[in-house]
Amino acid sequence: MDINIEGLVYAFSALGAGIAVCSGIGTGIGQGNAAGMAAQAVGRNPGAKGDIMSTMLLGQAVAETTGLYGLVVALLLMFVKPFK
């Protein structure tokens, strides 16, 4: 069986993209944590719902950054193909 080097690069790029997207695990845990805490806070103090909401969204957006880095790396590997 002969191995085509180009196919090998494609294969490992796809594999790397899959592994890169695993960074979403941490993001998911973090965002879920923030949402759960926000729900708790609203339950304790329903009057402050607007403030809690905006704080939660901001925190989630910042927590999302690392997951998005993984996504961008995956997109680069799949579509820009830096390794030829």
Binding site: T65, L68, Y69, L71
Partner: peptide
């Protein structure tokens, strides 16, 4: 960098 990547990544993910 992080601000632009955040916006870009979210919208690109939706588009893709």
């Amino acid at each position: 960098v992080s601000m632009s990547l955040r916006l870009f990544g979210n919208i690109t993910a939706g588009t893709v």
